[in-house]
């Protein structure tokens, strides 16, 4: 046997034992596939371009896109504390989740809320159920999650909503009829979003009681879609639950005006 053949034989047996280095993309791809790393891309929202970050578990972070993408990257790293890389535009299920939420269609939220506290999660999941075209007071969210005294805490939790638009915190407004603050670019954007969804922003009445219809004998929050269908002649107001129930009215099952 000549020397070359001999060397080739040894080489191939050495090659059997020596490990090949895994491709550098492998770790990245694995972490993305299991939701331990995120990608981000710009997305044109009704209030201008935003950066949206996502992973296999859902949309994890959304913020207004400034001229400098590294600002979003550092915001994400402080807030979410996971590796982040630039993606090739939001994948269809990310876009579908956002479109669905803003157009008021039903479907899963597709939000990755691992970074929020249990209380914040309750607030955000409750807020996610407010339909497009309607609004609810902060106090309503507090009551729905079983923490009626935590109205201010609800406000704070929504201020720190990591995924505005997807969790429609713009649909939570003040009970005095003013629209309140908005983290995604200020109250102007909140007004714009509510207007686009058909909420009569300028006519929101203070929640000082309930409104009902004398044809159905149902009473609602003033911002419920069914209240808006009641014509003026049939509209009746109540100062409180006792008054409405004494008059033989039942609470609306859609907006759940009372506990």
């Amino acid at each position: 046997m000549n020397a070359t053949a001999d060397r080739s034989r040894t080489d191939s047996l050495d090659a059997l034992d020596s490990l090949d280095a895994a491709p550098p993309a492998l770790l990245d791809n694995v972490l993305h596939a299991v939701g331990l790393a995120d990608e981000y891309a710009p997305w044109p929202s009704p209030v201008g371009d935003v950066f949206v970050a996502w992973n296999a578990r859902g949309i994890s972070c959304l913020s207004l896109a400034g001229p400098d993408p590294t600002e979003f990257e550092s915001y994400f790293r402080t807030r979410v504390r996971r590796p982040l890389r630039v993606g090739d535009g939001p994948p269809s299920r990310v876009r579908a989740a956002l479109d669905r939420r803003l157009s008021g269609k039903s479907g899963p939220t597709f939000a990755d809320l691992r970074i929020v506290t249990p209380f914040e999660r309750d607030v955000l999941e409750c807020t996610a159920r407010i339909p497009a075209g309607e609004a609810r007071p902060y106090g309503w969210v507090a009551r729905e999650i079983g923490r009626p005294g935590a109205v201010r805490a609800v406000g704070t939790a929504l201020k720190h909503n990591p995924v505005p638009l997807l969790i429609p915190c713009h649909r939570v407004v003040r009970s005095d009829g003013r629209i309140g603050e908005y983290a995604l670019g200020g109250p102007g954007n909140k007004r714009l979003l509510l207007t686009l969804e058909g909420v009569p922003v300028d006519d929101l009445e203070p929640v000082k009681g309930f409104v009902g219809s004398d044809t159905t004998h149902i009473f609602c929050l003033p911002w419920c879609r069914y209240d808006r269908k009641v014509s003026e002649v049939h509209r009746v107001s109540f100062r409180n639950q006792a008054e409405a129930e004494a008059a033989g009215y039942r609470p609306c099952k859609h907006c759940r005006p009372v506990a």
Partner: peptide, 8 residues
Amino acid sequence: EADGHAAL
């Protein structure tokens, strides 16, 4: 890349 590897 290596001869041995191809053979393997």
